[in-house]
């Protein structure tokens, strides 16, 4: 989900507490906690965790001296090293910026069937990732043999183009190397633990401020984080829900991608309508007719969502995109959104 969807969901969660709504009317900012909680998991990841991660293998190509083979060799050697040492390695691929709005794209691929790392140069793209006309130049591909078994993973090319490039965790598990895409994302920050922690912090803050609604504040904070975490479960890649008890990210419900316009619009629209409805419901006297409101005004949102799902499942059946590819697509969309914003 997009940041704004998570954020507004968090705000909507807060409005389900009548005492919070009443306090808001009296001048309190308690409902803002919902918004903060809603965006907190991604804030932690994209503003902190991402930068603290130390890469072991850094790919930082020069746009005018792009050597695909050398990059492929480096990647393959890194994977081999994990096989040999059984020690986790972080592979980071930097982007190539050509100007305020131009980026030189390249792609890498982990070919698990043939045991190879592939690298190829792409076109110049703008920040919207739209290729510039005639910008694709002929350049030799890089191909390097990997000598250790790889977990069958996303089989297509991963593009590296705008803002910050992707990183991969290469880890020895079950006698083979597993490749984890953007390993710093959706770990501890997207867990029940984080919901509990943020809720406790909110409650403590309000208790310290001598605010009578400290329990409500704690609940709003916790539920807002939970809402974010649960919304992320709708995608292809879930999160590490039970951190620190578990170390891997779960698979999501595979319903939507983070960047899909209609589901995001549905969530934002529905959340806004919920907020307005709750504000009205907890004020005296309520002015909205629930039947007209939900039966009429809200109707376009679920209809749009149904249209989206019908189209999506038809497309999925035709494309048969592997789960790992979908998960990666999910992460790409989310990463690019926060870079682009």
């Amino acid at each position: 989900m997009k940041g704004i969807s998570h954020f507004i969901t968090g705000v909507a969660v807060g409005t389900f507490f009548p005492d919070a709504v009443h306090a808001a009317v009296a001048g309190s900012f308690i409902l803002v906690l919902g918004g903060i909680g809603g965006l907190l998991p991604d804030t932690l990841d994209f503003k902190f965790a991402r930068f603290i991660e130390e890469p072991d293998i850094l790919i930082d190509p020069h746009p005018e001296q792009f050597e695909a083979q050398k990059i492929a060799d480096e990647i393959a050697a890194g994977i081999d090293r994990v096989g040999a040492t059984h020690k986790k390695q972080i592979l980071k691929c930097n982007t190539m910026r050509l100007g305020p709005d131009w980026w030189q794209q390249y792609s890498i691929k982990f070919d698990t069937q043939n045991g190879e790392a592939l690298v190829q140069l792409g076109p110049i793209v703008n920040t919207s990732q739209i290729p510039l006309p005639e910008s694709l130049r002929v350049s030799p591909k890089g191909r390097a043999k990997i000598h250790v078994p790889l977990l069958p993973t996303y089989g297509d090319f991963v593009t590296v183009d705008i803002f910050s490039g992707p990183s991969f965790a290469l880890e020895w598990r079950n006698d083979r190397v597993e490749i984890d895409f953007i390993p710093w994302h959706r770990q501890y920050s997207h867990s029940f633990f984080m919901a509990l922690l943020f809720g406790t912090l909110c409650g403590a803050l309000f208790f310290w401020m001598d605010h009578p609604l400290y329990v409500t504040a704690g609940l709003i904070g916790a539920f807002a984080v939970m809402a974010h975490v649960l919304e992320d479960q709708l995608g292809y890649l879930g999160s590490n829900l039970l951190w620190p008890l578990t170390k891997v990210r779960s698979t999501g419900m595979k319903l939507i991608h983070a960047g899909d316009a209609i589901p995001n619009f549905f969530v934002v629209g529905t959340s806004c309508m919920l907020i307005i409805f709750n504000l009205d419901r907890f004020s005296s006297p309520p002015s909205l007719d629930p039947l007209l409101y939900w039966g009429g005004l809200w109707l376009p949102f679920p209809l749009a969502l149904i249209y989206f799902f019908v189209r999506k499942f038809r497309a999925d059946v035709l494309k048969r995109i592997p789960l790992l590819a979908q998960q990666e697509g999910d992460l790409v969309a989310e990463t690019q959104e926060v870079m682009d914003a």
């Binding site: 903060i36 804030t43 490039g165």
Partner: peptide, 18 residues
């Protein structure tokens, strides 16, 4: 206040790659 918080929270870093 919610709009302000979103504006500030949703400004994502542009540097920090290197």
């Amino acid at each position: 206040a919610v709009i302000i918080v979103y504006m500030l929270m949703a400004e994502w870093p542009k540097g920090g790659d290197r």
